[in-house]
Amino acid sequence: MSTPNTNVASYLYEVPGPRGRRRIIIGSIISALIIAGVIGAGLWQFGSRGQLDADKWTPFLDLAIWKYLGVGLLGTLQAAAIVAILGASFGTLLALGRVSKVRWLSWLCAGYIEIARTVPVLLLIYLMLFGLPQLGINFPVLWKLAIPLTLANAAVFAEIVRAGILSLPRGQAEAAFSLGLRSSQVMRLVVLPQAVRNVTPSLITQLVSLMKDTSLGFIVAFTELLYRGQVLSSFNHLLIQTYLVVTIIYLLVNGSLSGLASRLQKKPGRRRTTIASATMALPLPTPGGQSPQKAPHV
């Protein structure tokens, strides 16, 4: 069992004990063997059907193909950056409203978060593509993808930021109040910066999911990586090879983000939530009301 001086590796769950770590290691080894077996079986199938022949991969040595896919990658990064900025900003406002003392505002933000997390992103994209134009509202192609993704991801960002706020000991806010700061100043200068810093790895991890969501851009004919891969495969008739290359690009980009999140999570000096501070942290509040004994209402 963790001691009060033991750092907690996550703000969402407690560090597993020795038995739990052994199970995780065994499960990881078994999963790795299964994945390696599946990959090996797939390569064997591809090789037996001639999909690994050199003549099918030689076209990808052409610089023009990589330039073509590079334009799609830039489109993916552009859409992801826009959604990340707008979604994080909107999500932060939702998180602040969610922990607000104002009952109707808390309920309103909670209702939006629950609805946005349950409605499929694909449905929102179809609404932007087919529904709004019938009302005379027609956005550029980029925003037909960015707006639905922003509406959906803002709810996720809100819950991540709210978890960071609730993870802080109540003494943080009390100390700020004792200095004579107003509620808005306490939240803006003390609580929110620490909360965002604590959940930065989780925010970066959410960017990985966001990067994958941009692949829905092919529905609105937005020039992103998967859409370019579809067009390229229809041109060179190398469906498997093209999609494998696109997959590798996604793995490299998303793997880099995941690696960055892991490094931030393990970075020495990063503040961790301990068992002692966890007992002072907030439980997840119900809409419109939180526990006055534990909540850093600011």
Results as ranks from 00 to 15, higher is better:
162 R>Y: 05
280 M>H: 11
190 V>T: 13
259 G>C: 05
259 G>W: 03
232 L>A: 07
276 A>I: 12
185 Q>M: 09
238 L>I: 12
164 G>H: 00
180 G>Q: 10
213 D>F: 10
275 I>V: 15
214 T>I: 01
287 P>R: 09
204 I>D: 02
181 L>N: 12
180 G>F: 08
272 R>K: 12
153 N>P: 00
199 V>M: 00
203 L>K: 01
282 L>A: 15
182 R>C: 06
208 V>I: 15
199 V>S: 00
184 S>E: 15
196 V>Y: 10
203 L>C: 01
188 R>L: 13
205 T>F: 04
215 S>M: 08
206 Q>C: 04
270 R>P: 04
178 S>G: 14
259 G>D: 11
167 S>G: 06
181 L>K: 12
167 S>E: 09
162 R>D: 05
243 Y>H: 13
229 G>D: 10
208 V>D: 01
193 P>N: 10
155 A>G: 06
255 G>L: 01
287 P>L: 07
257 L>I: 05
253 V>D: 04
286 T>K: 12
284 L>I: 15
242 T>E: 05
262 S>K: 07
226 L>H: 00
278 A>I: 09
254 N>G: 12
197 R>I: 03
210 L>R: 00
195 A>Q: 04
278 A>C: 04
169 P>C: 13
193 P>Y: 00
243 Y>I: 07
212 K>M: 13
167 S>N: 05
156 V>F: 08
272 R>V: 07
264 L>H: 03
160 I>N: 04
190 V>S: 09
247 T>V: 06
157 F>M: 14
233 S>H: 09
254 N>Q: 11
237 H>L: 15
167 S>W: 00
287 P>T: 06
163 A>D: 05
